[in-house]
Nucleic acid binder design. Sequence first.
DNA 1: CAGGATACGGAACCTCGGTTCCGGTTGTCA
DNA 2: TGACAACCGGAACCGAGGTTCCGTATCCTG
Lengths: 200, 200
Amino acid sequence: MSADAGTPPAARPLRADALRNRRRVIEAATEAFARSGIAVPMDEIAESAGVGVGTLYRHFPTKEALFAAVVRHHLEVLVDEARRLQGADDPGSALFAFFGRMVEEASSKQDVVEALNQAGVDFKSASGDLKKEFSAAVAALVQRAREAAAIRADVEDQEVLSLLAGACMATAHLGTGAECRQRVVQVICDGLRSPTAATP
Amino acid sequence: MSADAGTPPAARPLRADALRNRRRVIEAATEAFARSGIAVPMDEIAESAGVGVGTLYRHFPTKEALFAAVVRHHLEVLVDEARRLQGADDPGSALFAFFGRMVEEASSKQDVVEALNQAGVDFKSASGDLKKEFSAAVAALVQRAREAAAIRADVEDQEVLSLLAGACMATAHLGTGAECRQRVVQVICDGLRSPTAATP
DNA sequence: CAGGATACGGAACCTCGGTTCCGGTTGTCA
DNA sequence: TGACAACCGGAACCGAGGTTCCGTATCCTG
């Protein structure tokens, strides 16, 4: 795992203790945001990281910047996953696998759900490119699935994205168990299969 | 439309201007919450109602109480709709019709989405009974559809509720148009149809 | 090891939004 | 119409949480 996630300019040596603290902060923030979303107070993150709030702001100019950094990392993982699946044999299974993976991921990461939902975060300037990358990666999966007639032809990329987001939000908020989550995904994926080209 | 929505104790005459203001407040709050969800400031509601904040608090003890009253009204409408549909000829169409209706409703009512999502509001004590009523009404629709084999047998009531909520959240937040909304609903409804008992 | 730059902690500051309070106003009733 | 009670407006109050500031501690270099 790239522990330097969130060090765009680089080039600067960065003192030893500073680097240690930065890592602690990212770790604590990742945990806190995953648990309670962006609503978690900065003080709380600082405390669980074992540093003062000042240190948080020395590494990230604003709370949203910290949030964006954390979410960006999660999204990167998902984009990687999507790209890996683009090379899969069965485009249909690939898309559906991603669907399941994503929902499972979101179920334990409140921040991802909120980011998907744009709740409160700017998330456009901060990680606009990545968001675009994410959409593009999913769109590619959809495209391949559509060409293989693995999904119905009358749904746009946008709709699949919406369904993805909806599935994440629904399963993340309503107290649903793992198997419940899977069935929800199953229903949506079945719905996505072309009615004229259902599994034989 | 029952304009007195939110007058549980009643029995008190309530002065003329007070009644007028109460209606204005509810109207303004309904509009404001629908537009921006519970995040809208009380001051703003007061202003657009043409009253002072004090008046808001004279009629509703707390912001959440006001929010709950507004949401309660929306839910009542939906519960009525669900009950009406319970008597429909085709249980499958009834459920799917409700699905579409609900999503359409939520698409213009941010507050309903948030209530569904439990975002911030207590919503349990305030309108707990109604929430239960709502769930029950939907469950009844699901039950009938299941008995008529109009939907697959392997989904629980809870999952349908989740799918409903997910559809609302997805379509409400991501800037999706009306036709896009319909396709999303279509996909989910198709997914809900029993794979072994699809439309002939 | 000394000197200076770099970081740190966390109290103080500021803004925002819910809630309260009270002097003034308005409806109602005799 | 006069008097009282019910209401009203909106300034003031308060707590929460993001952000800033500065004296102090720590790290690195010569």
